[in-house]
Computed example of a mutant assay.
Amino acid sequence: MTVTIYDVAREAGVSMATVSRVVNNNPNVKPQTRKKVFEAIERLGYRPNAVARGLASKKTTTVGVVIPDISNQIFAEVARGIEDIANMYHYNIILCNADKRKEKEIRVINTLLEKQVDGLLFMGGTVTEEHVQAFRTASVPIVLCATTDEQEAIPSVDINHEDAAYDAVTNLIQNGHKRIAMISGPLQDQSNGYARYQGYVRALEEAGISLNEDYVRIGNYRYESGVDMMKYFLELSERPTAVFGATDEMAIGAIHAIQDAGLKVPEDLSVISVDNIRMASMVRPQLTTVAQPMYDIGAVSMRLLTKLMKKEPVDNARVILPHEIIKRESVAQV
């Protein structure tokens, strides 16, 4: 049978209120009494009822995390940062995979809110008006993690994706490249796909290079789309000398498509991207990429959420973390 707080109180010879104070680390309990209660808990194998404690305190010490793709290395690293800070502040995590599907994301958000989480982290997906409407119904703090909303009204932690793309393409231009193609993410993804496309366009414009529509193809952030889009570029009568992949996965797909065609990276085509997943340093040649501080994005997001949940002062509810180019072997001068 389930051991209750009443059983522990009877075993220790104290009141249920005293057991409750011990379980909740209330300092107003004598050391000898505290010892008796803990001994009774150990003998009986009592586990405090988290649901009941949550109902009493109106806090569950639980945070919901919506992740768009649990198999993606980028989001796995963000989740690790979230988990480490959550443990530090004694919060439990409910992690929900949404498969990058808006309908599932909305359903998961509502489910987590129904479970009375103390706060919510929405990770890395496109924030639509439907998402914003779901967030408005929440009575708990929400932080966007590795994404932002278009109005920038919701607290968020991310990098500047446009600047990251701009720096990547500028690196190619500084190496003498003028025929630069881009394998973009979906342009309806404002905070990531479209922002990185805008960075690509801005770098070309500032260098006086005309935008060639044949040099832009839309992928889905994954390896296979990088392979497919690169095959298209290789069939052009005037193929590019360099390719900017909006993600490392697509860039690695591009490298393999180039190699499958009997060409070499970077001798025949240079490749650069954004993210700096572990695979970027494992592929040959190693991929030059703009690194996102993914662990830090997760950690800072969780710390911001703890401040909001505890109603602590917040100096900046929209945090932009720095990025940096990691120069490896996939870019050559022309």
Rank of each mutant, 00 (worst) to 15 (best):
V3L: 08
D189S: 12
L263P: 00
A138R: 07
T60C: 04
T62D: 02
V65E: 00
V132Y: 09
A254T: 11
Y166M: 11
R136K: 15
P313D: 09
V216C: 05
M282Q: 15
A291N: 07
A317E: 14
I209F: 10
A261G: 02
N276T: 15
Q286C: 08
I180A: 12
R107W: 08
P266W: 04
I5M: 09
V14I: 10
D296C: 07
S210G: 01
A79Y: 07
G81R: 08
G125E: 03
D189W: 15
G64L: 00
F233P: 01
D296P: 01
P31V: 13
K36M: 06
K35A: 14
D69T: 13
N28D: 03
Y197T: 08
A317L: 15
E105T: 10
A181F: 02
E213M: 13
K35L: 15
R318C: 12
V331A: 00
Q73W: 14
V108I: 14
E267A: 11
A251L: 06
L287H: 06
M1D: 14
S301N: 07
R196A: 03
S273F: 01
V14A: 04
L112Y: 10
R318M: 13
R278D: 15
R217W: 14
A50V: 11
A299S: 10
S139F: 07
V216N: 04
V132I: 12
E83L: 06
K35G: 14
Y6F: 10
P68S: 09
A291D: 06
E103S: 12
G119D: 00
D158T: 03
I277P: 00
L236Y: 09
D7G: 00
T128C: 09
P313A: 14
D158A: 06
Y215E: 01
L269P: 00
T2Q: 14
N316G: 06
D69Q: 12
V23S: 01
P186M: 02
G185P: 11
S156L: 04
A257V: 06
S225F: 04
A165R: 09
E114A: 14
G13E: 05
D7N: 07
Q32D: 09
F75A: 05
I93R: 02
E324R: 15
K102D: 04
T289S: 02
P240F: 08
P68I: 11
I209L: 14
L305D: 07
T33G: 04
A246N: 09
E152N: 15
I218M: 10
N171E: 10
S270G: 01
E249R: 09
N110V: 08
L44A: 02
G81F: 07
R222V: 14
